[in-house]
Amino acid sequence: MEYIFIIAGVLLIVLTIAAGLIWVERRLLALWQDRYGPNRVGPFGLFQVLADMIKIFFKEDWIPPFADKAVFVIAPGILMISILLTFAIIPFTDSFFVLDSNIGLLFFLGNSSLGVYSIVLGGWASNNKYSLLGSIRASAQMLTYEVFMGLSLMGVVMMSDSFNLREIVEAQRGMWFVFPQFIGFVVFLIAGVAETHRTPFDIPEAEGELVAGYHSEYSGMKFGMFFVGEYLGVTLISTLIVTLFFGGWLGPSFLPPAFWFFFKTAFFICFFVLLRASLPRPRYDQLMDFGWKILLPLVLLNILVTGAIILYLQ
């Protein structure tokens, strides 16, 4: 019974944060662009999200006649499910988590690969050239970035000797992994941005080139699921960065562990928004070049050096 409460609690918290992020992002982007952003609905425009939700539920949920209906409907769900499932393995504190799995990290990598299906199928089922181009880009980008996203975490796994996220956090009691694994952290951050299709790596959407990329044909709540999925992804990557590199819930004991976890996560979420506010989108081939020619050798080198040092110290 308690188990169900925890699952419901995690779902509630995560979905509320993801929806709230729409407001946070708009306000923060506005702050960095010397504007105000939404500030009319409720205090500081906080109810803007509610207003948008009501709006999006009442919009016509249109399926184009030329679309592959079944796949078109399923696609946004896959994204939501694959991301929400991953939250099961995040240890928010040492006692508040859904699943204490000994393959937690692998579960995350597997689920994030499944997330690509959503985008590829969504673009394919839309039966639209722009959507298809977007999903082709997405699949190529994901293939590239999945490779060294996984590899960038291997240093952490080697140092903590575990795939279990709770044990990885416990292993950081002495020192956060961001210091010994700085290269791993930077590569994971970049791969995380690419994983969630956020600017500067929003090439699958690229509204200047592809209308809206893979979700051009989506409307109503199906679009809303892609949209919230993006913010869920941002939250997920932020929580993972915190868990893997910044000591999760660990922090000075004058504040509860949950606070430290959410504080660190909020910091990285804001950093994601800052990246969007400041960086332009690279070209498709530049992204590929950067991935295969710079990040992959870098991360392999990182694994080599980490492994060598661990062996030497034994």
Binding site: L31, W32, D34, Y36, L274
Partner: peptide, 22 residues
Amino acid sequence: SILRSIWLTFLHAFHKRETVGY
């Protein structure tokens, strides 16, 4: 230059906002 532009964008948090609350 990427780090620099991230930093310069961050500094805009302390700039005056251009919007006039009409």
